[in-house]
Simulated assay, not measured.
Amino acid sequence: MGDKAQSHHPGAAGRALTADRPASLRNVVLVGHSGSGKTTLVEALALTAGAVNRAGRVEDGGTVSDHDEIEHRQQRSVQLSLVPVAWDGIKVNLLDTPGYADFVGELRAGLRAADAALFVVSAADGVDGSTRMVWEECAAVGMPRAIVITHLEAARADFEETTRVCAEVFGGDDPDAVLPLYLPLRAPEGPDGHTPVTGLVGLLSRKLFDYSTGERKESEPGEDQLPGIEEARDRLIEGIIAESEDETLMDRYLGGEQVDVETLVRDLERAVARGSFFPVLAAAPAAEGARQGLGTVELLELVTGGFPTPSEHPLPAVTTTGGEPRELKPCDPDGPLVAEVVKTASDPYVGRVSLVRVFSGTLRPDQTVHVCGHGLADRGHEDHDVDEKTGALSMPFG
């Protein structure tokens, strides 16, 4: 998570890694109000991972996930979009959702398809009521979450204040479960009074990650910079230790024992995966011609290292066609096919195209499957009980 020495192998532009086992998959939905920067963040992550050669802009209608003419005209997302990228041998399915309330059905579809959520919060606008409601829904089902603060370049952006608000709103009775892993590193104040964010300071590693050249470079902080991060670092360590499965660790730490970074990272990843700790990160799109946007490497490391695999996602309630409950092993490629049609769209050239989340078994082309709506009182159809034949299978990219 920015504190580990890792090598990564991005996929070729426009093509994501093929995952051959559940452990090499992460399904992540991006949640946030309209204008918080979800689509721009997906574009930045795709660029850093090597899935695209250059980042498009929402204003130009050139982003991967906003591909519909209506989205180009309105300059906002109106439908669920899937962008797969590869990082460190892990395939990450990024589900970009609309933030506007009229398209809440697309958001709910993304939540059903995902195993974890990234809540995107603008440093200029803060947290709105609808984002808070979705957070509470995710909390009710125990979905792991992390927070990404965007729009750091805005004139009224305040990372520290936004982090405090997030801890107050999302932390509930335990604000120490919502803490930053990195602090923004700002350049000297310019003649216009603007101080752009050029990098990040890793609280656990005490490393500087400079993005000012368009590519992440690691260095050691100066002696004058260390005192500024110690208070935030101590609070983060105590927050991680409080979620540790080692009940003696807090007493040892308070007794003066130094806890090694590897132990802290392992405990952090476990706490994130089980949905009891919610790290805060910062991200910004890459400048023109740059290869990496600020914070995108750290975010991809969090997703691949801390978010759960599909094997850790509980199976939905499964019944036979006769309505009898059936127990199945989750994520068994050789087991019976259990999948959910997340959404279906109509394409003028292809016909009906369905986005499907597979929980168990293997979906194959030209396979006859039984589609049943029984038991889905909130979104099912009592009379939907029919055999269907799949057509060609493909992985959407936007």
Rank of each mutant, 00 (worst) to 15 (best):
Met1Leu: 08
Gln6Cys: 13
Ser7Arg: 14
Ala12Phe: 15
Asp20Thr: 13
Leu25Asp: 07
Val29Asn: 06
His33Leu: 02
His33Asn: 01
Ala49Val: 01
Gly50Tyr: 04
Glu59Asp: 13
Ile70Lys: 15
Gln75Lys: 10
Arg76Ser: 06
Arg76Met: 08
Leu80Ser: 05
Val83Ser: 15
Leu95His: 11
Pro98Ile: 06
Tyr100His: 14
Tyr100Thr: 09
Glu106Phe: 10
Leu111Trp: 02
Arg112Tyr: 15
Ala117Leu: 06
Val120Asp: 10
Asp125Ala: 07
Val127His: 00
Ser130Trp: 12
Thr131Tyr: 07
Thr131Arg: 08
Glu136His: 14
Cys138Tyr: 04
Ala139Asn: 13
Ala140His: 08
Gly142Glu: 00
Glu153Cys: 12
Ala155Ser: 15
Arg156Asp: 15
Phe159Val: 11
Glu160Asn: 13
Thr162Asp: 00
Thr162Gln: 02
Phe170Cys: 06
Phe170Val: 05
Gly171Arg: 00
Pro175Val: 08
Ala177Tyr: 10
Val178Arg: 07
Tyr182Ser: 11
Glu189Ala: 10
Thr198Ala: 14
Ser205His: 06
Tyr211Thr: 00
Thr213Phe: 02
Arg216Asp: 11
Glu218Gln: 15
Gly222Asn: 08
Glu223Ile: 10
Glu231Tyr: 11
Ala232Cys: 12
Arg235Gly: 04
Ile241Gly: 00
Glu245Arg: 11
Asp246Met: 04
Thr248Ala: 07
Gly255Glu: 02
Val261Phe: 06
Glu262Thr: 13
Val272Met: 01
Ala273Phe: 00
Arg274Asp: 00
Phe277Trp: 01
Ala283Phe: 08
Ala284Leu: 11
Ala287Trp: 07
Leu300Thr: 03
Glu301Thr: 02
Thr304Ala: 09
Glu312Pro: 08
Pro314His: 10
Pro316Cys: 03
Thr320Ser: 00
Thr321Ile: 13
Pro325Leu: 08
Glu327Val: 11
Leu328Ala: 00
Cys331Val: 14
Cys331Tyr: 11
Cys331Glu: 15
Asp332Val: 05
Asp332Lys: 03
Ala339Trp: 03
Ala339Lys: 02
Tyr349Ser: 10
Gly351Arg: 05
Leu355Gly: 05
Val356Met: 06
Val358Ser: 09
Phe359Val: 06
Phe359Thr: 05
Phe359Ser: 05
Gly361Met: 07
Gln367Leu: 05
Glu382Ile: 10
His384Asn: 13
Asp387Arg: 12
Pro396His: 09
